[in-house]
Amino acid sequence: MPDYSKPFVVETDASGKGIGDVLMQQSHPIAYISRSLAPRHQAMSVYDKELMAFIFDVTKWSHYLIGRAFIVKTDQKALKHLLEQNLHTDFQVAGISKLMAFDFSIEYKKGIDNKVADALSRKPDAELLAISLLTLNDFLYEQIKGTCLHTRLVKEIRTAVKEVGGVTILALEKMPLVKSVIYETLRMDPPVPFQTVKARKNIIISNHYASFLINKDEVIFGYQTLAMKDCHVFKNTKEFNPNRFIGDGEKLLKYVYWSNGKEIDNPTMNNKQCPSKDLIVLLGRLLVVEFFMHYDTFEIEFGKLLLGSKVTF
């Protein structure tokens, strides 16, 4: 995960048919880009293709780079003096204007040493997995595989079902990834995001910065979606992380409130927690299991209905 107290490094490369770029910190990849060039872009000069890759990088990763000094490493020597050169084409003028908001320095790196970006720029998508085994760390390898999560779910589900001899509670308990996926889904998009309750007595509630007095009979309004995107508790709160609640990550379940209470708590006659919360989680796990028992992968289209969401497989 990125550490904003440390500098970012962008390694970039453009080949005849594509661009390949890696965002790094302390020699560890954080994100990558591999993109084919359209025929009209393939006809550009080497300099302009390298410049285009650079512009695309900083625009794509602006949420990491804006407001911070970072280093760009390229095997195009001329780019090292980018801000000192005369501009000869409209593309170069437009490109430089997009870069003015960023604080960067450019370093030359020999192509032979720029292995990751060079490999990503030259290989078609089908070969990226083989490249990643040799050039990228395990985390980035998982990100490159577009169907990685589906592949992992298929393996976990079918292995557990085969070992136990069927889809049983015992089999489900051998599927930590499935459970984590369900909890992360509920964290990202709770089925009932808004909650209200009247205070039965004077209470004090606190956040990371202050405390507030709620008087008896005052109405408390809760937005559970916001509560479960607390950046002091969860890393990269807006990103879906299927591994978030695996292993030690289970400790974070006390901050999951989709059921109008902590996930680690149980509904009682004296609280307003959803009485069927455990059933909902169980049904979600079973639904995922059934899908991946029948399909290796699938695509979903989301839409909105008046009273809920529309999902098309």
Rank of each mutant, 00 (worst) to 15 (best):
S27I: 06
P267H: 12
F298E: 01
T159D: 15
P2M: 05
I300K: 13
H294T: 15
H294N: 15
E127H: 15
L226T: 04
K98D: 11
I182Q: 01
S211A: 13
L226V: 08
L186V: 07
I157W: 01
D125P: 00
I30A: 05
K98F: 10
V164R: 13
K145A: 12
R200A: 14
F313E: 03
R152I: 09
R35C: 08
K49G: 03
D103E: 14
S276E: 12
G95M: 09
M44G: 04
L149P: 00
Q25V: 04
R122T: 02
I96A: 03
I66C: 04
G284T: 02
D48K: 05
I112A: 13
L306N: 10
L128E: 04
V9M: 08
N266C: 11
Y295P: 00
V154I: 08
A199F: 05
K254G: 09
L140N: 05
W258M: 10
T159V: 07
L286D: 00
S276L: 11
M228N: 10
K216P: 01
Q273R: 05
K251Q: 13
E84K: 08
V72Y: 06
S5C: 10
G20D: 11
N260G: 05
I55T: 14
P193E: 06
S62Q: 14
L128S: 10
V22Q: 05
S62Y: 07
D248Q: 10
E218Y: 09
G222S: 12
D138C: 07
P176K: 15
L186N: 09
S15R: 02
V178E: 00
A94W: 08
P191N: 08
F104L: 07
L120S: 02
K272E: 06
V58W: 01
G166D: 06
K179W: 13
Y255G: 06
D296P: 00
Q85F: 05
L82P: 00
G249W: 04
G67R: 06
V10N: 03
N271C: 02
F292H: 10
L83A: 15
T89K: 01
K155E: 07
H208A: 15
M24R: 08
K229T: 11
R200C: 11
A78P: 01
A31G: 02
D113Q: 14
V116C: 15
D265R: 03
V9A: 07
R152G: 09
Y141I: 09
F56D: 07
D278T: 00
P275S: 15
K229I: 05
F56T: 14
Q85V: 08
E263K: 12
I19S: 03
G247R: 02
I19Y: 01
P267N: 06
F139Q: 04
D21P: 00
Q25H: 06
A199P: 00
Q42K: 11
V161Q: 01
T147W: 03
T185H: 08
L287H: 02
I157L: 04
A160Y: 04
I55S: 11
M188H: 09
G303D: 07
F8H: 07
E184R: 02
K216C: 12
V93F: 08
V178F: 00
L140E: 10
H63M: 12
S97T: 14
F212I: 11
A31F: 09
E11C: 09
V288E: 02
I205W: 02
C148D: 14
L128G: 04
K17T: 15
G284N: 07
D113W: 12
I300S: 04
V311S: 04
M269I: 08
L252E: 02
I55H: 03
Y4V: 03
V164I: 15
